[in-house]
Design a protein around this nucleic acid. Structure first.
Lengths: 263, 263
DNA sequence: CCCGATTCTCGTCAACTTGACGACAAAGCG
DNA sequence: CGCTTTGTCGTCAAGTTGACGAGAATCGGG
């Protein structure tokens, strides 16, 4: 862009955006992941309008004037899924604007939500059914609207990778959880089995990851388990400190990292 | 894409984007990093126009109609720095649109370029001086235009973190390089000293990172060093395979990772 | 009330990786 | 010809991982 082209509108104190700049509609799409029935599941909506009417899609929609990216993402989740979910929301990446929407050039800022299994979910105003779907099934048999299959694949890979070095696995759990619950999160997201003894050693031995509550489970089968909560500041990135919209900055806590078993 | 589903406004080739969607100007900004004089340096331009006339800024500018994100980033680099640089270009994240540009809401898709030290750089047609600046100095004494200080900080942190597990350090080197050159990249980016013997063991012992050329350096002081090139597919992410614009997907190669020394 | 099943937790041990460092190899320089 | 510089190979203690044994604490059924 030739910045010499930038002009000042008469009667306007601020310089104006150059007239040859593209003005693009922007959507936010959310890859909302949870762990349900020991499987990684993704929240999908059935589109109620064209294009791709009737197809499955990620929840999302257009950014409105005066709105920030994170605000748009949470608003769309509320509108389409009827939830103001807890958990960790971070920016995933930006797609487009060319060749991904039949309506023309549209920029899409994808987000990633890692959340505990929040109960479903009322159908949104302009969408059909809203439901959790096992991520592996969708990734394999994927026929999602737009380029949502690719966005979902990127989101799942991001989640898998972040579990290795960040405390974000705790975002899938409730406020208090056992080491075994945390392990089942890893097992579901990675699709592997982990040794409970070694996992417990690593989880409890990592400073800044878990905080003891002093309480234990009761009522279930087997020996009661100690209850923990996520350590303070554990999953706190820059997003929790301000209103700015930008990519995720999450502190690395698991050091050395807990690597996925390699085939 | 199923164009049969499109509903077309009469007399309008752009169907069905809802009328209440914001139409945003979008910029691309590039955090271009290299290693020069054993230091991590960032390419900055002096702005020639308001806003922030005379201030230092990341190279970048507005996306034009019909243009993709990556295309806009490379075009801006060519226009403002006079280079069609080699190296690795990936998306960093998207900032805004609120509160970051005095001209109004502007979305900025930041990119990260890791490149060998390409010779400077002609002043762009519409910008003032273009030059490399030591990253640490800029990060400390930072008064950059817009929110570019924050974007730079995010870009440097991304680069530092990616060196741990990806082969991207080779993007800072020329087509052939020695293990010592690669080590100096790590030392410059991380700002630490690494043991040459241990680094050599890790670099040469990591499958898929280096490829022997059979040749050696000559002429310099000391014993000649073996020349390597980046292993095929090493720094190749999805971006190299298609025209789609999206976030970076870089294969993890250094496994277990080469972690920064922790204080 | 005892017994097995289940689940959580602690301990042990070999294999591997890291960090620190000694030693040698191969060039240039006086 | 030594001396310096730089790259490469080895060695070794310390720490981490992966595999697994064994005990602790609870539930449910005979």
């Amino acid at each position: 862009m030739n910045r010499a082209d930038e002009t000042t509108r008469p009667g306007d104190g601020d310089p104006a955006v150059p007239p040859d700049a593209a003005l693009l509609p922007v959507t936010v799409d959310v890859v909302a992941l949870t762990v349900r029935d020991d499987a990684l599941q993704v929240l999908l909506v059935e589109r109620g309008v064209d294009p791709f009417r009737g197809a499955l899609a990620l929840p999302g929609g257009f950014v409105l004037p005066g709105e920030g990216l994170t605000a748009a993402a949470t608003r769309e989740l509320a509108e389409e899924a009827g939830v103001a979910p807890p958990g960790h929301l971070e920016q995933l990446g930006t797609y487009g604007p060319l060749g991904r929407d039949p309506r023309g050039p549209v920029l899409s800022v994808a987000h990633l939500l890692l959340a505990p299994d929040f109960g479903v979910v009322r159908p949104g105003s302009d969408a059909g059914a809203v439901a959790w779907h096992p991520a592996t099934e969708v990734l394999d048999g994927a026929t999602l609207a737009f380029d949502h299959a690719r966005i979902l694949a990127d989101g799942v890979e991001r989640a898998r990778s972040k579990l290795e070095y960040s405390p974000l696995a705790t975002a899938f759990c409730g406020p208090e959880f056992t080491v075994a619950e945390l392990r089942r999160v890893y097992e579901a997201v990675w699709g592997v089995r982990l040794d409970p003894r070694n996992f417990s050693r690593k989880a409890t031995g990592t400073p800044g990851l878990l905080e003891e509550t002093g309480r234990t489970t009761s009522g279930g089968a087997g020996r009661p388990a100690a209850l923990y909560r996520a350590a303070a500041g554990g999953s706190a990135g820059r997003r929790d400190t301000g209103v700015e919209d930008g990519p995720a900055v999450v502190r690395a806590v698991i050091d050395p990292p807990l690597l996925r078993p390699r085939a």
